[in-house]
Write a protein that binds this DNA or RNA. Structure first.
Lengths: 72, 72
DNA sequence: CGCACTATACTTAGTAC
DNA sequence: TGTACTAAGTATAGTGC
């Protein structure tokens, strides 16, 4: 229940780290989605992890490619 | 003071939209930073906006390039 | 315009099953 | 391990300067 302050450091415990990753990844993607929607801008995010075979991307693989092509 | 619930829709008012963009962009980048630090993973974010001449990137232009090269 | 403030909405760490 | 719960910590909308 969030009884501790978040210490900004690598979480050593494997299962705890994975659980936190899953939760925060979800929250982060939501934030990106909100920022994009609220402000009508282009953005993309790519998240690699040893837990997923494919990197997590937002808004979509194609959307990421389009933003990337503009970036390069 | 956040007296309204956030309605997930494009903010029509220009100045309000810009103000929200600036605040949320900051918060979003912080979240990406935390996720990366806490879980020891690779991630990157690219945010375009009409307010900045350069797209906002995380963790850095070089870091983004490295993540991208893995993505492609 | 941009920063500081702050009440309130939102996110999330730890837990139980 | 995954999901649900909820307290407590964090982010942020609206405001004044």
């Amino acid at each position: 229940m969030t009884r501790k302050k978040v210490k900004l450091a690598f979480i050593v415990n494997d299962s705890a780290r994975k659980a936190t990753f899953k939760k925060r990844k979800k929250g982060l993607l939501k934030k990106v989605d909100e920022l994009s929607t609220l402000c009508g801008i282009d953005a993309c995010a790519i998240i690699y992890s040893p837990y997923d075979p494919q990197p997590e991307v937002w808004p979509s693989p194609l959307g990421v490619q389009q933003v990337l092509s503009k970036f390069r």
